[in-house]
Amino acid sequence: MYMEQILKVLETNARTSLEELAAMTGKTVQEVAAYMDECEEKHIINGYRTLVDWERAGVADVQALIDLRVTPRRDFGFDEIAARLADFSEVDSVLLMSGGYDLSLTMRGKSFQEIALFVAQRLSPLEGVLSTATHFVLRTYKKDGVLYGKDPIDERECQ
């Protein structure tokens, strides 16, 4: 029970210390540490990242979502092509989707052109890729549950 709570707290703030997690759940620091090690080993926890708004940081950066239609391979389904796409360091995420296309990629690059070239020269020619549709991100309002650039406002008036 407390395990799910630890994961939820970490998901919203990965910098929460072991001591704080222990206090919140009524467990010892050792118990929490052991649980987190276990989660890392089992890939329940897959990393601790920071949510950066690169636009605000003034670093030129372009993000794109790319829809792919692919032919699944006999015996391997989509796993083989998904693994090959995941090998590209330019690609941030690879998701198998239900609906009108099969795989959804997100990636970032320095310019629209860089991404467009990557798609044309490296993705499209891959065996099994039937079609691609590239969508560029123009602005991030909310991501991973976080409103970018805005502090939540407490509207409660009655103290």
Binding site: Q5, V9, E20, A23, M24, T25, G26
Partner: peptide, 14 residues
């Protein structure tokens, strides 16, 4: 309730 409980424990400790 669970969320309050986490905060409660954290705050009492702090």
């Amino acid at each position: 309730r669970k969320e309050y409980d986490l905060r409660r424990r954290w705050l009492v400790n702090a």
